[in-house]
Amino acid sequence: MRLSKVSFRYRRRDSFVIEDADAHLAPGDVIELTGVNGAGKSTLLRLLAGLARPTAGTIADRPPVVGFAPDRFPTGQPFTVTAYLRHMSRVRGGARWEPWSERLNMGHLLDTPLGDLSKGSAHKVGLVQALMAEPGLLILDEPFAGLDVDTRETLPSIATEVAGRGGIVIASDHQGGLRGLPGVRQWSVVDGRLKEGTAAPAVEHAKATAPVTVAVTLPADELPRFLARMRDEGYRTREIEETR
Rank of each mutant, 00 (worst) to 15 (best):
Q129N: 11
M132Q: 09
M132I: 14
A133R: 04
P135D: 09
L137F: 05
L137V: 15
L138S: 01
L138Q: 07
L138N: 02
I139C: 02
L140G: 07
L140E: 01
L140P: 14
L140M: 10
D141K: 01
E142H: 05
E142A: 10
P143H: 02
F144Y: 15
G146V: 08
L147R: 06
D148G: 10
V149E: 14
T151F: 01
T154P: 01
L155H: 05
L155F: 09
L155A: 06
L155M: 12
P156G: 09
P156Q: 13
S157G: 06
I158D: 01
A159T: 07
T160A: 15
T160R: 15
E161T: 12
E161G: 13
E161L: 03
V162C: 04
V162H: 03
A163G: 06
A163H: 08
G164C: 12
G164T: 04
R165L: 03
R165K: 11
G166T: 06
G167S: 14
I168K: 01
V169N: 03
I170E: 00
I170G: 00
I170D: 04
A171M: 04
A171G: 08
S172K: 01
H174N: 07
H174T: 03
H174R: 12
Q175S: 14
G177L: 01
L178T: 03
G180D: 10
P182M: 01
R185Q: 12
Q186S: 09
W187M: 11
W187H: 05
W187R: 04
V189Y: 03
V190G: 07
V190M: 12
V190L: 12
V190D: 12
G192N: 03
G192C: 02
G192E: 03
R193Y: 04
L194S: 05
K195L: 14
E196S: 14
E196L: 09
T198F: 14
A199W: 11
A199I: 08
A202K: 15
A202T: 15
V203D: 13
E204F: 06
H205Y: 02
H205K: 05
H205L: 13
A206D: 10
K207H: 13
T209N: 11
T209L: 08
A210Q: 06
V212A: 11
V212F: 01
V212T: 10
T213N: 08
T213I: 08
V214F: 04
A215E: 08
L218I: 07
P219Q: 12
P219S: 13
P219A: 15
D221Q: 15
D221A: 08
D221C: 03
L223T: 11
L223I: 11
P224K: 08
F226Y: 10
L227S: 05
L227I: 14
A228I: 09
R229A: 07
R229I: 14
M230Y: 02
R231F: 02
D232Y: 01
D232I: 03
E233Y: 00
E233S: 06
E233H: 00
G234D: 00
Y235H: 15
T237L: 05
T237E: 02
T237F: 07
R238M: 05
E239G: 08
I240A: 14
I240H: 09
E241T: 07
E241V: 06
E241N: 07
E241A: 14
T243D: 08
T243C: 11
T243E: 11
